[in-house]
């Protein structure tokens, strides 16, 4: 329990540091939001509007930096991440609320599936090393070595087009209104099949290889020999003794991979024009939409932290040696 508390304190501290950096970085850059917005809407904003914008952004109050910091923390606590320049005056939080679920569902589910499939195959390949199952290794590694965007483009070329079941772009049928109804969910699922499949195909090799190697290593441990000598069933030895110990390093890796779900896969969304956070970030960068970029970075940082925290918890549950009584 003490270990748990230590980790929690560590993560809270890191989150605070991330939030603070997020506050200071834009204030270190030259210019102010009003100038940026004017630059964004060149010639479309009248001079009278400049003043009202200054008031809107709260730049007329002449607060000290510390007061600004306090009110920034207060805003964050209310979930207020500022106003997007590009889709002015939509708040950044609503932009994120629209795109985040898409990314989390698509990439999150694909990452979990990839981990599950790769780990399971890794156990089998490692356990039956030297058999035909070894063939899986070069095959999956081949797919992992293809640059992702290239594979995705090939997949679009091969599997989509006129008359194909699979759509080539988007998150759902443009004719539908997002909502919790059968038609929309079915359409969203259909649109996610190809991106999810390409993610899995390119990432499964890493899990497979890591797990296989660990299973091979663990198989020569004494406790696995003891388990054999005890006359336990092959299945029990493989899962309860070999795989159970071999998967510990993979769990840490999985935590990291989950953390990168939000930030690390804009390529997927870009190629498939998928309405997620990655695509949002790319367009925010293109349009110099600083508040949106800031919001996305904050979300990425926090999700990495949250995922790592979850991985820590999982590791504690799986490996009794990391639990410290105290």
């Amino acid at each position: 329990m003490r270990y748990f508390a230590q980790r929690l304190v560590f993560y809270v501290f890191t989150a605070w540091a991330a939030v603070t950096i997020n506050f200071f970085v834009p204030r270190l850059t030259p210019g102010n939001p009003v100038d940026s917005l004017i630059a964004e809407y060149q010639g479309q904003i009248s001079t009278q509007a400049v003043h009202s914008l200054t008031v809107l952004f709260g730049l007329d109050k002449q607060q000290g930096i510390f007061q600004q910091y306090i009110s920034y923390l207060g805003q964050l606590a209310r979930g207020d991440l500022g106003i997007s320049f590009h889709s002015f005056p939509t708040p950044v939080s609503s932009v994120l609320a629209q795109s985040l679920p898409w990314t989390v569902c698509l990439v999150g589910v694909a990452t979990v599936l990839s981990f599950a499939i790769g780990t399971l195959l890794g156990v089998i390949v490692g356990w039956r090393r030297g058999s035909l199952a070894d063939m899986l290794m070069p095959i999956t590694t081949f797919f992992a070595s293809i640059p992702y965007f290239w594979l995705a483009l090939l997949a679009i070329a091969a599997f989509t087009g006129v008359g194909s079941f699979l759509p080539s772009a988007g998150g759902y049928d443009p004719g539908l209104v997002p909502g919790w109804n059968g038609a929309f969910v079915a359409s969203a699922l259909k649109h996610s099949l190809l991106p999810a499949a390409t993610i899995i195909v390119t990432s499964v090799a890493g899990w497979l290889m890591g797990m296989r190697n660990m299973v091979v290593t663990v198989s020569s441990e004494d406790y696995v020999t003891v388990a054999h000598a005890k006359g336990l069933s092959e299945r029990r030895v493989m899962l309860g003794y070999a795989a159970r110990n071999a998967m510990l390093p993979s769990v840490s890796g999985f935590g990291m991979a989950l953390g990168l779900v939000v930030g690390g896969t804009f390529l997927v969304e870009y190629v498939f024009s998928y309405p997620g956070v990655g695509l949002e970030l790319v367009s925010a960068i293109g349009q110099k939409d600083y508040p949106l970029m800031q919001g996305i970075f904050l979300v990425i940082t926090l999700s990495v932290l949250a995922a790592n925290f979850l991985a820590d918890l999982a590791y504690m549950a799986l490996d009794p040696r990391t639990r410290r009584e105290g």
Binding site: T225, V226, H228, A229, K230, S233, L318, P320
Partner: peptide, 26 residues
């Protein structure tokens, strides 16, 4: 047959007790 034979008739105490127990099980 081998599974039934093992441990019931012939058990083994291994060299390194440190590693002979599964570290993640009680």
């Amino acid at each position: 047959g081998l599974r039934r034979f093992r441990w019931a008739q012939t058990s083994i105490v291994f060299q390194a007790a440190m590693n002979a127990l599964n570290p993640v099980d009680k």
